[in-house]
Design a protein around this nucleic acid. Structure first.
Lengths: 125, 125
DNA sequence: CCGTATCCTCATCGATACTG
DNA sequence: CAGTATCGATGAGGATACGG
């Protein structure tokens, strides 16, 4: 069944393609979603976040956070009064709209892992 | 709320992160999902598929199809008897398990487009 | 029609060193 | 702690030409 599921014609998926590509453009790359996941449990400081998103370098984390903030998915708060300056990143309300996407990816990742384990089995959705 | 949603502890998202990364590794890149979408309406010949997935080159389509087939998401059928050889690609049963993922991406893509209209800012397309 | 071979460019990402 | 600057490797992806 093409997307959207109630589509009438053979060229139905054209519209869905554009949306999917849009999402991919914004969320694609290695780190965007993992960072969102890392923030899904609550606000995090830069260093904490780097520890949570295993393997990411400070450079990449900084760059990705900037892009995510520009797109309104997260927000950045600075506590300038402390001696070692504290910066906190928070998942914005708009960022929470990504949960269905992440959930779907999470589910499928688990399914695929199971699928690889016993490669002979047929998988149920 | 961290993933999975019923998680108990502060380190809850670690598990979800792995699954999401797994999916991203397999489905990431510019063309994998668009190709799946292109096949979601039914079997397609190579050239038809290339027309449907706007902008893809024969080289990329060939390469991506190979990877998708290796991962069991699509299947390839050759009709050798015809004069111009006919090759047909079909979304495998396992490929259908990606529908929730694509649907989520599709929905969010639309949401984001509306979000941009509304906000009047952010991101040049 | 269905690809493959070759060459090329450019973005992505990592490592390291450094600053406020 | 919270980043930035610089360099370099890698490979994804595109253009073109050609083969089965």
């Amino acid at each position: 069944m093409p997307f959207p599921s109630s589509a009438p014609s053979h060229t139905a998926c054209t519209g869905a393609m554009r949306s999917v590509r849009d999402s991919l453009d914004l969320l694609g790359g290695k780190w965007k979603l993992p960072i969102i996941v890392g923030l899904s449990g609550g606000p995090q400081r830069f260093k904490q976040l780097q520890r949570e998103v295993a393997g990411i370098t400070a450079k990449m984390l900084s760059k990705e956070l900037k892009e995510l903030e520009i797109n309104g998915l997260i927000s950045r708060h600075v506590q300038a009064d402390a001696a070692p300056v504290a910066v906190t990143y928070t998942l914005a309300a708009y960022g929470h709209t990504l949960f269905p996407v992440i959930e779907a990816l999470h589910q499928w990742g688990q399914l695929h892992r199971a699928h690889i384990m016993h490669a002979g089995e047929v998988v149920a959705a």
